[in-house]
Simulated assay, not measured.
Amino acid sequence: MKTLSDQAVGTAHGKIILIGEHAVVYNEPAIAMPFMATPVEVIIEKINGGSVISSSYYQGLLQTVPDSLKNLKSLIQSICSDLNQPVDGLSISISSLIPPERGMGSSAAVATALVRALFAYFERDIAHDTLLNYVEISEKIAHGNPSGLDARVTSSASPIYYKKNSHFASIPLHVSGYLIAADTGMKGQTKKAVRDVARQMERASHQTLTIIKKIGHLTEEARLAIQDDHVELLGELLTLSHDCLKQINVSNDRLDHLVDTAIKNHALGAKLTGGGRGGCMIALARTAKQAKLIAHKLMENGAVETWIHALGENSNE
């Protein structure tokens, strides 16, 4: 009989919507990037008695988790049942650098790391499709009707090209450079922003649809730029996308100020990322030195946190 590991570790990372947000609702493509600068780690150790969870939100018994963590409780129970293992006897420590409610895939990343840690602890291999199925259990409880995008990106090393209800495809990441993300300190308002765009589509359908289709075209160009290492072009496309998002009123003054700050400090491009009306923005730099300068200037101009992620294997200092 196999002896269970005394300790097991599972990891994942955040995600960034590079381009295509909001347009993706209207069947245009979007591209999401794995964002390794915001890692998640789950450590499981063997203990006696009831299982416990330790995280920044809650420390205590698994059986008495708050509503905000019931998705993880259900996930743990499902995996233990499927693997014919007891739910008790686990010390589960969760460490995440992904800020919640910023559109960076926090809940999916934690679920991904937890699934990997549990399978490692019980010494079982796991196929990627099986991993995604388990993360979906958690995401349905957390979000109701998830697209599956967050689960794929937080468990992948490659950018994901996505179309609503139809298509996920990995993109070869050949582009070099540095992606900076900055947190406005404001929770994103995705649901309200999506609803407002829908109303704008009703009131001014031709004008709004033209902007949506332009975002889709910019996304297709960005896909080629990523594959062909055209980092300057990619930066230009990001800025053009932000201009489109401003036209459909999903940005706000704080996001616009941070985007302008990045551009003034020689970013190749910048835009909001995710639902908008708060949350985060991103900027693209050619070198690590430029990225650090841009991140510093963003903090001086109101960002509450920044992260830098190197793109591709040949990013230059």
Score class of each variant (00 low, 15 high):
A108T: 00
I180F: 03
E317L: 08
V65W: 03
A303Q: 03
K297V: 11
Y162A: 01
A111T: 08
E220N: 13
Y26R: 09
E136V: 07
I79R: 06
T239H: 14
V24M: 04
A117L: 11
V24D: 07
S91T: 05
A109D: 06
E202S: 15
K2P: 13
A157E: 13
L90I: 05
H257E: 07
N84K: 15
V135G: 00
I180C: 08
L218D: 10
L72S: 14
D256W: 14
A12T: 08
M36G: 04
Q189A: 12
T112V: 15
K191D: 10
M33Y: 13
R152D: 04
T190S: 04
D88H: 12
K246N: 13
I141L: 12
S74E: 15
A151C: 09
G278S: 11
M104T: 01
S176G: 12
T154K: 02
A285K: 03
A151F: 00
E202M: 15
T3N: 14
V25D: 05
A204M: 12
A288M: 08
L75V: 03
S106F: 10
L245H: 04
K164C: 00
R223Y: 09
G185E: 02
V40F: 00
R152A: 07
H296F: 10
Q7M: 13
H128A: 05
P100W: 06
G103R: 01
E123C: 13
I126G: 07
K292S: 14
E101N: 08
A204G: 10
I126F: 02
A127D: 13
G279F: 00
D253W: 13
Y134R: 06
E139W: 01
L272Q: 14
K70Y: 05
G274C: 04
F119G: 02
E236Y: 09
A182L: 04
L237N: 02
G20P: 05
A109S: 15
G279Y: 02
L284Y: 11
L114R: 04
L245P: 08
G302V: 07
G105A: 09
